[in-house]
Simulated assay, not measured.
Amino acid sequence: MLQTVLSAVDFLPAGEAFQLVRATVEPRRPRGLIRRDFPVLVWVQNGAVRLHLAESRIEMVEGDVVFLRASDAHALQARADETLAVLLVFDPHLIDTLGQRHEALAGRFFWSEEPTPVRVHRDIRQLAQMNQAALRLDRSRRDGLEAEAFLLPLFASLLDGANLVPPDAPDWLARACAAAEDPRIFREGAAGFARVAGRAHPHVSRMARKYLDKSPSEIVNAQRMAYAAKRLTGTLDSLAEIAADCGIPNLSHFHKLFRQHHGITPQRYRKAHQRDLIQPA
């Protein structure tokens, strides 16, 4: 099998921390793999891609994102018409130091120790945001600051709701935990969690209990109460409005859940975290 070897020294111009590549992927099967000494973030902007690796392959669809480590030899093959992929090449030193500075990244994304690279999925809205961020990045200074300004929000959004999910948990469970941060999902309660998980409710409950020691309802309620706390300090909305926006129109139940999660009533929480900071009595 033919192999192409690329080096960061040759691929990245002096002083640049990254390079962005947009390319139409051809349907022909690759004759070999590309070996690199630098990491690459790749996502499918349109169409479908088969990602060939040394020991396996990954089928990618629009919105799929893969974190290719320097050790992951790869090649791309289109599996649909008009397939467009975006690749972000990073200075390996930048990625190494980023992982050292942020413990939350250990064992995830570019720093995963799993046999195959990490794949995540972005929905239509998230993919649009990612493409907009990439467009801004392409027009930037191409230094480390700009690279981190792109990467850190991406990592933070992927870790939202999923940062407590063990690495060996199913991908769909991590995605459901992340999706449960969205009010549009947690307003539906446990049913919304099971829906975005894409699995039968009993199976979702078993896996949530196995990997997180929580039920879907407990996971969703934690997100609801975190959201309620933000609304109490960040807005002047009434308790009834906040409760309804959490998907809990029953104020008595809302009060009970809030006290369980924060230890005090919503009114006292707002006073302690909002009013006392601005104009204490």
Rank of each mutant, 00 (worst) to 15 (best):
L2M: 11
L2D: 15
V5E: 04
L6F: 11
S7Q: 12
D10P: 01
D10W: 02
L12I: 12
A14N: 08
G15H: 03
G15E: 01
A23W: 05
R28A: 14
I34R: 13
R35K: 11
R36Q: 12
R36L: 03
F38G: 06
V42K: 06
W43S: 10
W43I: 04
Q45W: 01
N46Q: 15
G47F: 03
G47K: 02
H52Y: 07
L53Y: 07
S56N: 13
S56P: 06
E62I: 04
E62N: 03
G63T: 08
G63Q: 05
V66G: 01
L68W: 01
R69W: 00
H74W: 10
H74T: 08
L76C: 03
Q77S: 04
A78G: 09
A78P: 11
L84F: 00
V86P: 03
L87C: 09
F90G: 07
F90R: 03
F90K: 01
P92Q: 11
H93C: 02
L94Y: 06
T97H: 07
L98I: 11
G99T: 05
Q100A: 12
E103P: 05
L105N: 03
L105Y: 12
S112M: 03
E113I: 07
P115H: 02
P115L: 03
T116H: 01
P117D: 03
R119M: 13
V120P: 00
V120C: 06
H121Q: 11
D123N: 15
Q126V: 08
A128K: 11
A133W: 03
A134V: 10
A134Y: 06
L135H: 11
L135M: 07
D138T: 13
S140G: 11
R142C: 10
E146T: 13
A147R: 14
L154T: 14
L154C: 08
S157I: 05
L159Q: 07
P166Y: 04
D168I: 02
W172S: 06
L173I: 10
L173H: 08
R175V: 04
A176L: 08
C177P: 10
P183H: 02
P183S: 02
F186K: 05
F186E: 02
E188Y: 07
G189D: 15
A190D: 14
G198P: 12
P202Y: 04
V204A: 08
S205D: 12
R209P: 00
K214L: 11
P216E: 00
S217Y: 08
I219W: 05
V220N: 08
A222Q: 14
A222W: 10
Q223N: 11
M225S: 04
A228C: 01
L232V: 09
T235H: 02
L236G: 07
S238I: 09
E241I: 09
E241G: 08
E241Q: 15
A243K: 08
D245S: 15
G247W: 00
P249G: 06
S252T: 14
H253I: 10
F254M: 05
F254E: 01
L257V: 07
H262W: 13
H262L: 03
G263D: 05
I264A: 02
Q267W: 00
R270G: 01
R270W: 00
K271D: 13
A272I: 12
H273D: 04
D276N: 14
I278T: 12
A281L: 12
